[in-house]
Amino acid sequence: MKPLKWILRIWIAIASVIGFLGGWATLAHAGKPAPATSSQPSINLPAQLPTLAPLPNFDNGPVQLQPPAQSQPFQSFMPSFRTRGS
């Protein structure tokens, strides 16, 4: 039994050394990682971050309103529908 045990130990040791050296050689010949300035979209993470909706205005104070520029004339189907002081 003893010689078998020794053969097994030597075989495991040799296999470990060969595995380690093989892995080292593989990594040494692998392609280098892209530089940080790469324009590849896959690493442009900030643009993909979700944005939060603006928080509601809790002070309820009046805000200035900007009516859109009147690029289109008012529709004429109800010209008399105006709201004004009573």
Partner: peptide, 12 residues
């Protein structure tokens, strides 16, 4: 000038 609440914007 026009003033209003934040919800008023949706009517302009």
């Amino acid at each position: 000038r026009l003033w209003g609440s934040t919800v008023s914007k949706e009517y302009l």
